[in-house]
Design a protein around this nucleic acid. Structure first.
Lengths: 149, 149
DNA sequence: ATTGAAAATGAATATTATTATCATTAGAGA
DNA sequence: TCTCTAATGATAATAATATTCATTTTCAAT
């Protein structure tokens, strides 16, 4: 789904609930729909303010909550204390590996794993549509510090 | 792995780092190892204080962080703003596949996938301690209903 | 185009979970 | 036992999230 389609879907969701379209909301949503990564409110606010300087934190916060509720954004917690929002499909998904010491996140994508997932699911009678996979461990830096300690 | 084994493993982890065993720490860890669910600090503190009234929040907090770092607890965020800790089941862990229609959950375990996870992590400089994997799709029943619709 | 009720905004404040500080206490090897 | 180091627990600091409220904006009905 491209950004324009998402805007349409959002509009439908809002009118179905008696919510109003505003320039701020539209601009925040559009900006978000053009991102690929899991973006924090902080980061999104930065992007948004490059064009619309007056937009407040609360508005970004509220808009993302709205997108999350409408199913157009996926809110995720990686354990670093910040909620991040993931824009759906876009250019294909990725999985995450998270350092349990410093919370640094790396991304990867592995088709072989996905093939095995489908296979495992099939044995149980399921058909996989989507998945979420997070690995936890030590990043290179923290592994080194650990050895030194 | 049973609670006693976990205590041993924790002990090994601590002595390897010059950390000390204390009655509070041991009791918190033992209490946690006997849980099945995703427990919050709040809840764990409650449990712990039923026997050891003086134990402070900070100690529970620090102990769980320690368990998390040692790989004996998995911290999870479900989006309600509270970190919860998951005790790794005695009979080995499993992953989940969830039906997006009826929410039925099946469990599976696949060593081949885990090998590929470690491999993928290694390429990024990470060492995997544990993981979380959830597949979403249609169970056999719902796939049928879907075709009928 | 005008109006007015309902909703949204943004600045500021409140709330809550997490983390750090620090004086004191306790563990463990010599 | 002594001594060094880490742990504890009370409290304070931090940071993310949530709420409040006066003002502004939207939008449907006129």
């Amino acid at each position: 789904m491209n950004p324009a389609n998402k805007m349409e879907q959002l509009s439908a969701y809002m009118s179905g609930k008696g919510l109003k379209s505003t320039s701020q909301r539209d601009y925040i949503a559009d900006t978000f729909f053009r991102t690929n990564t899991h973006i924090s409110l902080e980061e999104l606010l930065g992007k948004v303010r490059r064009k619309h300087k007056g937009i407040g934190y609360a508005t970004v916060y509220r808009t993302m909550k709205l997108l999350s509720e409408s199913g157009l954004a996926l809110s995720r917690q990686f354990g670093d204390g910040q909620t991040r929002y993931e824009n759906l499909p876009a250019d294909g998904h990725h999985d995450h590996i998270i350092c349990i010491k410093c919370s640094k996140i790396a991304e990867f994508h592995n088709p072989k794993i996905e093939a095995l997932q489908s296979e495992a699911a099939k044995k149980l009678g399921y058909t996989v549509v989507n998945h979420k996979m997070e690995l936890y461990g030590y990043c290179a830096d923290c592994a080194v510090k650990d050895r030194e300690a």
